[in-house]
Design a protein around this nucleic acid. Structure first.
Lengths: 348, 348
DNA sequence: ATGAAAGCGCTAACAT
DNA sequence: ATGTTAGCGCTTTCAT
């Protein structure tokens, strides 16, 4: 009654021997494939249990030519945006046999290419990648990939395959309209870190264009440092030093805007009386502090969910694992444009 | 000059044919294995490039019995703690050929077991999992895993293999000492969501014990909802309703404490005069707001880095890929106890 | 330094 | 319903 081989885990062959059947029967039972009699199934299951057998997914993936791995490529983990998207993806993927393999590019295009290169070699069931603008190598790999590709976050551009996100154009327009409607005229914009990712630049350009259409200029200041409260503070101080007469500043994201809020508070600048402040993203915090920050709510979690849903639909046959079929409002097209909402706070 | 087969990607065999060599030579070149002449190498590389050949990692992993996948299992993505740990892991793993495969348990033990089950079937090079307390099934799988296991976050307990984290005991003691030294006597504690993860319970117990040793009681209130600013607000209101005379409240984390801070501000409760507030984690925000929140800085990013370093050392032979060798201060043991620091703010 | 043979553990395809 | 055969694409082992 001793284990036949303590060094390596049991294989389907071991189970087959033990149960007195063939390996393919073991395979069928473990995969819950059809055409197996209940008696056989129980016998094999018992043997598998006794040996502690686990089918080797690597071998299965090689033979069946399907890994069930979803390559998820995001630029960063250091603010809440991408974790929330990933959380959404994970939620959306639960109930399928798909697994997330993570790549973090740190906003480095060479790294993005290297990561994608590596992940594609795993023959993933799908790739979910952040943004619509990619290095030519990355674009080529995505276009040539033999699996579905979902580009998330942004819908302003030409998707390679599937796409879910919000419109940066819309964001810029929304904020410009709001600020002008509430009487602001001398408007500034603060970004960070060379405007990575690209969609922050798109939003800024759309914002500027919308102001131009209304006969207004935009003072722009871009900090070198990555986005953070501290950077927002510095950016706010810097743009006000250059343009002391601004009556509103729009920030590339809420972190920056919050930093600016602290700067104003500490320097006796009244918000919103002396100056209006607005961010982008709609993180939980902005609605909790006093004054509540005006921002645009970007549905990050939902984007993840939607990306996973689009994939489930595309891959349906192979990976569904239950009642995913009862799917809610899935739009027909390959691009899923989610709405943005202006969240009016007390700072504008 | 047309592609031999447009439907499926080229294999090593295709490259071998094209270069007029054997498949094993292609394999050697692609892996930069020794015993290949420069001429041969160039010839094969050229052929591979022309065909756009990428070695199939699934096949390689099956034969070589090494996937280079690191299973990372965390309870949640919805606050910054685990993304930061993952970020650290990713940083620490860069420069190796190891890749992160992610599992999110949502604090569900059954789900944790299922995820681990599934990930182990991928024959990972290592498992990094959050916490020291696991479901018996999970513990058994980890103990029986044929790869290194790193338990991160917590060092108070019996690690299965490698371990890196901070001491919850120490955290409880640190905060108790601080509050008592600064004159607080009627102390409360607010947790959330059934005290998941377990280490928040450990901290609370250590905190209570440290107060008992000083002759003080602890009023405890646990909210049902997951941690958030909103929950902190509610928890603060609730514990003060029950114990109006408290002069300090320690919260399971900074999110809760921040919520409480907003509650106090809106209800005319002066902080720190009427009541002291303290959190745990040391997120960026707590040092930026006014008043700065007292908390304990928990080195999340560093834990990730350390976990990756311990793995690099253990797996060194197979996966190192450059100058990782020049490694800094790696402690000798299998458990790496990182220090905590009390971050004194204005709220105590 | 190069190659031939064998087979990792599983599953598709084809019997029976 | 069960089994036999072949082979996924690569790398180990052993020759030369």
């Amino acid at each position: 009654m001793s284990d036949p081989d303590i060094s390596s885990p049991p294989t389907a062959r071991d189970v087959a021997k033990r149960a007195g059947v063939s390996v393919i029967t073991v395979s069928r039972v473990m995969r819950s494939a059809p055409n197996v009699s209940p008696a056989m199934r129980d016998k094999v299951r018992a043997a598998a249990l006794e040996l502690g057998y686990r089918p080797n997914r690597v071998a299965g993936a090689l033979r069946a030519r399907e890994t069930g791995l979803v390559a998820v490529i995001v630029p960063s983990m250091s603010h809440s945006v991408f974790p929330e998207v990933i959380d959404g993806i994970d939620h959306g993927l639960s109930g399928t046999s798909l697994r997330t393999v993570l790549g973090i590019t740190h906003y480095d295009q060479a790294r993005e290419a290297a990561i994608l290169h590596d992940l594609i070699a795993w023959n993933p069931a799908a790739v979910i990648i952040s943004g619509l603008e990619h290095h030519p190598d990355v674009h080529a790999m995505l276009a040539g990939a033999s699996c579905p590709v979902v580009e998330v976050m942004d819908v302003d551009g030409d998707p390679i395959d599937l796409c879910v996100g919000t419109s940066q154009q819309e964001a810029g327009e929304l904020m410009a309209a709001h600020l002008v409607e509430t009487g602001r005229r001398r408007i500034g914009y603060v970004g960070a870190w060379g405007e990575r990712p690209d969609r922050s630049r798109k939003r800024r350009e759309a914002f500027a264009a919308a102001l131009t259409r209304r006969g207004l200029d935009l003072a722009v200041h871009i900090e070198d440092a990555p986005s953070s409260l501290k950077t927002g503070r510095a950016g706010c101080a810097a743009i006000l030093a250059e343009h002391p007469d601004l009556d509103a500043i729009h920030f590339a994201n809420d972190d920056l805007a919050l930093g600016a809020l602290f700067h104003c508070r500490e320097n006796g600048i009244r918000v919103p009386e002396d100056i209006g402040l607005a961010g982008f993203n709609g993180i939980e915090l902005v609605g909790m502090i006093t004054p509540r920050l005006t921002t645009i709510a970007n549905p990050r979690f939902e984007m993840g969910i939607c990306a996973a849903r689009m994939l489930s639909r595309r891959l349906n046959s192979e990976y569904s694992e239950g009642d995913q079929d009862a799917q809610v409002s899935l739009p027909a097209g390959d691009t899923w444009h989610l709405p943005l909402h202006l969240s009016k706070g007390d700072t504008t």
